[in-house]
Write a protein that binds this DNA or RNA. Sequence first.
DNA 1: CGGCGTTGTGTCGACATAGATATATCGTCG
DNA 2: CGACGATATATCTATGTCGACACAACGCCG
Lengths: 229, 229
Amino acid sequence: MTLEKAFDPRLATGETTVTGRDVEMLRAIDRFGSMHRAAAKLGRSYPHLQRRVVELEDEIGQLTRRERGGTDGGGTRLTAEARDLIRQFERLRVELAGVTTVPESIIRGTVREQYGELATVRTAAGEITARVPAATEEVEIAVRADAVVLMEPHSPPHSHTSLRNQLSGVVSDLAVGDATATVTVEIADGVGLTSVVTAESVDRLDLAAGTDVIAAFKTTAARGTPLDA
Amino acid sequence: MTLEKAFDPRLATGETTVTGRDVEMLRAIDRFGSMHRAAAKLGRSYPHLQRRVVELEDEIGQLTRRERGGTDGGGTRLTAEARDLIRQFERLRVELAGVTTVPESIIRGTVREQYGELATVRTAAGEITARVPAATEEVEIAVRADAVVLMEPHSPPHSHTSLRNQLSGVVSDLAVGDATATVTVEIADGVGLTSVVTAESVDRLDLAAGTDVIAAFKTTAARGTPLDA
DNA sequence: CGGCGTTGTGTCGACATAGATATATCGTCG
DNA sequence: CGACGATATATCTATGTCGACACAACGCCG
């Protein structure tokens, strides 16, 4: 049974929350120039759509310029604020989609020391510093593959960067795609760390199954979730 | 009007989707040992809760061991699969929450060349390679602050890493918190790139307002969203 | 054997959501 | 002044969700 990650993005303000349906509605109004045609194209009723527009504007401010009468009977156009709203929502959707799309690596460990929102965690691959909620012992550390940097093993020590977790390992799996490649580095027995890099980086770092590499990631990119509770 | 990013996590399988409410229900069953008490504590009706458990099990497989009769009247316990499900959901929630919590930097640009899912984009801060949907011209590139690596400017060139975007700039803002710090680097006039690093990295890299630094991020961590549409 | 606290069902009604329908209003044009 | 196509609004109805209530089945115990 494979469970797929999914989500519903929302933009919330005290009272109302803007949903994907609302954004779809605004897009349709923008494209078709009137709420009537937007409602028709979306297959939803005009009265509810119209009320929703008013409701949103009561909360968020003017989103449309609605005019009735005139040679074409009138119509509705979006304001710049509405377009900003759409862009903001789209960015959120893309960012959230990244979470469900990008592979993540899970490393179990036990918390050694906690510093505010950070902690050092002992794992099979050595000590890792990560974001960990307070007062937890056993944790799972999750690292997104697009946050894992691969480095040549014999390069000078990278002490002058903010990459605090640097784990040496061996490439155990390499899937080169169109323009990107998914690389899994075994950093300890049975512990893999997956990274998504450009195909160009695969060439530049001379990566292949069996290659020695250093997999690095920032403390703030590693998130621990409690295992107990 | 500030709109807060929000989301509803889900775990989807062909037919049913597991919602936060379902996970909360499983947690309550686990804690109180019976569906009746779980329903009471959650303030929801037993029949619907019970039906939902059966419905979920029909889709996902056995989640509970339900027993009736006996000295204590029976009760319901979770299976290991149910606990896995809860953990998986919690990880998703944490990852998605990261998106709404971590600051992101937005850089506008125009696509120069597209390679599959990647593209080089001309921006005010120079060329940047990023993930960009096909057939778009004007884009906004979003980079999460926990994916931005800070490096000393005079260190040897980091050509032996998978960090393809390396932009030099000046620290324009520095907010040191409990254990982490939010650093904004001005990489061009009016273009800021925000990074969240550990307080220790601030010391190690000797960061302060006005310091020269290199801000780097992976191509796969930069996501473009179309501006036109 | 009856009591108890469960799990398992069936059914009803309250409530919110959304489409369907009807009507009023508005402003330009022929 | 009437037609047209849009906005604005009231109201009815279908639908789905969920709590409320009722009742059967189960299995151990006193």
